[in-house]
Structure formats: structure tokens, C-alpha cells
Design a protein around this nucleic acid. Structure first.
Length: 109
DNA sequence: CTTGTGACTGTAC
DNA sequence: AGTACAGCCACAA
């Protein structure tokens, strides 16, 4: 039985390439309807960034959040652009166009 | 157990 | 559009 954080990581891994998801969305899919902050905390505590597409997680406004590491924010944007995600002049993503619509195999739908 | 902190979100001004 | 505040949850001290 995986813990809540493992559940969060699992959901993040389900985000398809070229798509993004919000913290609240992931929280809900992971079983934490009000745990958006916890999702951020889980990602900040990520010990294995290599196996989790954390770059596909953004806030509900379509912006990159990263508070303590603006350095990583730049990396996140680069990675997303490499996947085909386009940022507008204000550094935001068109969520209506890129937000991931859950479809992890049937359970989440 | 209480307090502070954080990669969040929604409402109000 | 931006700023301020208040809920929210898990973790460290």
C-alpha cells in the first residue's frame, strides 16, 4: 500500500507529455481534495526527480510557482517548451489548451 | 500538543 | 489586472 505521497507521484507520472496539471487537480486525483499545498510540499521533497515529470505541474493560473528555487523554475519552463507547451508573453500557459484531462486507465474518470 | 512554514486556491477589494 | 486574507494539509522543531 503506497502512502499519500507515492499516490501523488503516481498521478504526476500519469500526466502525458505536452500536457500540464494543477496542484489541486493532482491532489484530488491522489485522494486529497484540499491538499494542493501538500502536493507542492511532496514535489519539493522529491528525492527522485528523474523519474517524476514534476515540470508538468503548475498552479491553477497556468504559471510556474517554485518559490524557493527560481533557478528550477527556468528549468521547468525549458522542459515544458521542449515538450511543445507554449508560454505567453507573461510567462503563462493556456490552461484551456494544455491542462491534462484525467485518463489514467479508467479509474480516474 | 503548539507553532511556524510552504512548489496552493478561492474570495474580496 | 494585481494585492490581501483566509482556509487548507503535512512536516519539522
Amino acid at each position: 500500500m503506497p502512502g499519500l505521497w507515492s499516490q501523488i507521484y503516481q498521478v504526476v507520472k500519469c500526466i502525458p507529455r505536452g500536457r500540464v496539471a494543477t496542484y489541486g487537480q493532482i491532489a484530488q486525483l491522489a485522494g486529497l481534495p484540499n491538499g494542493a499545498r501538500q502536493v507542492g510540499y511532496a514535489l519539493s521533497a522529491l528525492t527522485d526527480p528523474h523519474s517524476v515529470p514534476w515540470q508538468r505541474v503548475v498552479n491553477v493560473r497556468g504559471e510556474i510557482s517554485l518559490r524557493s528555487n527560481p533557478d528550477y523554475a527556468d528549468l521547468q519552463r525549458k522542459l515544458l517548451e521542449a515538450e511543445g507547451v507554449v508560454f505567453d508573453c507573461k510567462g503563462r500557459i493556456s490552461m484551456s489548451q494544455y491542462q491534462w484531462r484525467s485518463g489514467c486507465g479508467g479509474v480516474f474518470e
